[in-house]
């Protein structure tokens, strides 16, 4: 189970992306100095674009106005964060209704996802896509990250397992492993409660709490397995499996070598 590399690359790439984005935005502002009305036009354009995608990919299950059909729930009031999570992790658009719709290939670009998010957000008020300051664990100190661990064990580990390895839920559902999930998506999942996951609102779990949880997950994920190979990381179950396979099996093979006699005993 190698989950660390992707997260790691992301974590390293993020500051650069941020700096570049800020530069571009800043330049655009200082050089073009757009009139305020043009921002609104842009907004409308984005919603229009989102609607086009929504009508093609989403409306068959969620209804033309997101009112919800038998195949998919209403999207009124779910907010942009929900759309960004569902589409950004490849859960949506789903091929078919299942007990649990798994994460998958992300089929739309972030721009397109933003457009659909903006369109769905226009159905009714809901959680917005977070600013990076809300979820980015950058700048947390060691004590805060450790506190994130305590919060994770209080609120998350029951379903998602120790250090977010995932866990079983009733009737074939499961709480997914969090190793490959991007920071922003963890934040959005906490706030919007996708599928069976409960919501954790801002008043109960503040943004700083969530940042600390994300910081803990990232640090724990990048940390070495101090004791050696993880051997499957399923705790005592995998440990028991290996002690029989390698311990009993291996030593029995050696025992057979020890007890061999005659010409066979080289």
């Amino acid at each position: 189970m190698n989950t660390e590399s992707k997260r790691k690359r992301k974590a390293q790439a993020r500051p650069w992306v941020l700096v570049m984005a800020l530069l571009v935005v800043g330049l655009a502002y200082s050089v073009v100095v757009p009139p305020s009305s043009s921002a609104e036009t842009e907004m409308t354009q984005q919603i229009e674009e989102g609607k086009a995608i929504f009508d093609v990919s989403c409306s068959s299950c969620h209804g033309l106005n997101g009112e919800g059909l038998s195949a998919g729930p209403s999207l009124i009031g779910v907010g942009a964060a929900s759309v960004d999570f569902q589409m950004g992790t490849g859960r949506m658009p789903a091929a078919r209704g299942e007990a649990q719709i798994p994460a998958g290939e992300v089929v739309y670009s972030q721009e397109q996802i933003d457009a659909v998010s903006a369109y769905v957000a226009s159905f009714g008020p809901g959680p917005a896509i977070p600013e990076s300051s809300q979820y980015d664990p950058e700048g947390l100190n060691a004590d805060e990250i450790a506190r994130g661990g305590a919060l994770f064990r209080a609120n998350c580990s029951a379903c998602h397992g120790i250090v977010g390895g995932g866990g079983a839920m009733p009737e074939g559902k499961h709480a997914p492993a969090l190793g490959d999930t991007e920071d922003v998506h963890i934040y959005e999942a906490v706030r919007t409660g996708p599928q069976q996951m409960p919501t954790f609102s801002k008043d109960v779990l503040e943004d700083d709490d969530v940042r600390q949880i994300i910081g803990f997950l990232n640090t724990a994920d990048e940390a070495p397995r101090y004791g050696g190979l993880g051997m499957g990381n399923h705790g005592p179950v995998s440990e028991g499996f290996w002690i029989f396979l390698l311990g009993i099996g291996g030593l029995s093979a050696i025992a057979a070598w020890i007890a061999k006699k005659g010409a066979g005993a080289r």
Partner: peptide
């Protein structure tokens, strides 16, 4: 109150589908 943070809880803090430990 919340586990770990000891914050008291108001009904308005909770959305439908919310869980608090």
């Amino acid at each position: 109150v919340n586990d770990e943070t000891w914050r008291p809880i108001r009904p308005a803090d909770l959305e439908i589908g919310q869980l608090v430990n």
